[in-house]
Simulated assay, not measured.
Amino acid sequence: MSANKKFLPHWLTKHLFAYDPAHLPLDKVAELHRKLARFRVDTPEVSIVIPAYNEEANLLNMLSSLAEQEITRPTELLVVNNNSVDRTQEILDACGVRSIIERKPGVAHARQAGLMAARGKIMANADSDCLYPSGWLEALTAPLQQPQVACTYGLYSFLPSEKSSRISLFFYEKAAHLINSVRNRHRAYLNVYGFNFAFRRADALAVGGFEVDSGREGSVAELIAAGAPPPPSGRCEDGLMALALLNEGKGKIWRVTSINARAWTSDRRLVAEGSLVKAFTKRVWHSVRDLGFYLSPSQKTPS
């Protein structure tokens, strides 16, 4: 995980260290093994569940951020290895992280496997290539103490690479979150990001779990990051889960705007577009085109 540290929050820079997956820094691994020991509990109240596919280049950075979490309840950390062929499993084992292997390819299968294996009453979803502030878990899950809230999601910021600047990414995020606010009135499920949302596990099981044949690899957030609109049907595993919880009367979808609930993720989807201007233009065009749908109070979705 590479990023220009300029203009980044101070807490973030300590987790952006470089390492060689083939020659892990033993001192860092030992430190993480020690700090992550508090997540090795038998009866957790909260489960942090993370899918991972060939994430050897990012795992230590992500684990470093989770090792600093300020937790007030027994919490477990569970990583679902989705058939990785690199050193992902080796890194997880070295750091003492509980993991399971899901042979069926695709993030939806990995999330469903994590749901079934998790032991906490609350499930917080994260991703292997993201970094999380120390107050992330508490900020994201606190609203679930209200029975009328079924699902929470936080916002995101992008880590700049050599092909982007933090300043330009900041303005892109501002525009993206403005559109997010518009959708949040009647289409909040389209804003739910697989790398940053939480729900009660019993509710998720009651609605049948994740939609494993959701028709896409990836999540709503990945489409948004690429400047593409989420499918109106919500057919992504994260959006479908939120929509199912809403439609089955489990409660409302809650947008957590606290800076503590903001995940920092790679800008690789944006860079793939060629430029931020191109990604921004595409995003605005799709949003204007779909504005009527976003503002419609009906919860019905097109077939």
Results as ranks from 00 to 15, higher is better:
residue 1 M to N: 03
residue 2 S to M: 13
residue 5 K to Y: 02
residue 6 K to V: 15
residue 9 P to N: 04
residue 15 H to L: 07
residue 16 L to T: 06
residue 18 A to I: 08
residue 18 A to C: 07
residue 21 P to H: 08
residue 23 H to W: 03
residue 26 L to Q: 13
residue 27 D to I: 09
residue 34 R to W: 03
residue 39 F to E: 05
residue 43 T to C: 09
residue 43 T to W: 02
residue 47 S to W: 04
residue 57 A to W: 05
residue 59 L to S: 00
residue 60 L to E: 00
residue 65 S to W: 03
residue 65 S to H: 04
residue 66 L to A: 02
residue 73 R to P: 00
residue 75 T to E: 01
residue 77 L to S: 02
residue 83 N to E: 12
residue 90 E to V: 12
residue 99 S to I: 03
residue 100 I to N: 03
residue 112 Q to D: 12
residue 112 Q to R: 12
residue 114 G to V: 07
residue 115 L to G: 13
residue 115 L to N: 12
residue 115 L to I: 13
residue 118 A to P: 04
residue 118 A to H: 05
residue 118 A to N: 06
residue 134 S to Q: 14
residue 136 W to M: 11
residue 139 A to Q: 08
residue 141 T to A: 10
residue 142 A to R: 14
residue 143 P to M: 11
residue 143 P to K: 08
residue 144 L to I: 05
residue 146 Q to A: 15
residue 146 Q to F: 11
residue 148 Q to G: 10
residue 158 F to H: 11
residue 163 K to G: 01
residue 164 S to W: 05
residue 172 Y to Q: 13
residue 181 S to Y: 10
residue 185 R to D: 05
residue 187 R to N: 08
residue 188 A to T: 12
residue 189 Y to R: 08
residue 191 N to H: 07
residue 203 D to V: 01
residue 206 A to Q: 06
residue 216 R to P: 00
residue 218 G to S: 00
residue 220 V to R: 07
residue 231 P to G: 00
residue 239 G to F: 10
residue 245 L to K: 08
residue 252 K to E: 13
residue 253 I to S: 09
residue 253 I to F: 10
residue 257 T to F: 04
residue 260 N to F: 11
residue 268 R to K: 15
residue 268 R to Q: 14
residue 269 R to L: 14
residue 270 L to G: 10
residue 271 V to M: 08
residue 272 A to I: 06
residue 280 F to S: 15
residue 281 T to N: 07
residue 282 K to D: 05
residue 285 W to P: 00
residue 287 S to K: 02
residue 292 G to A: 13
residue 294 Y to R: 02
residue 296 S to Q: 07
residue 297 P to A: 12
residue 299 Q to V: 05
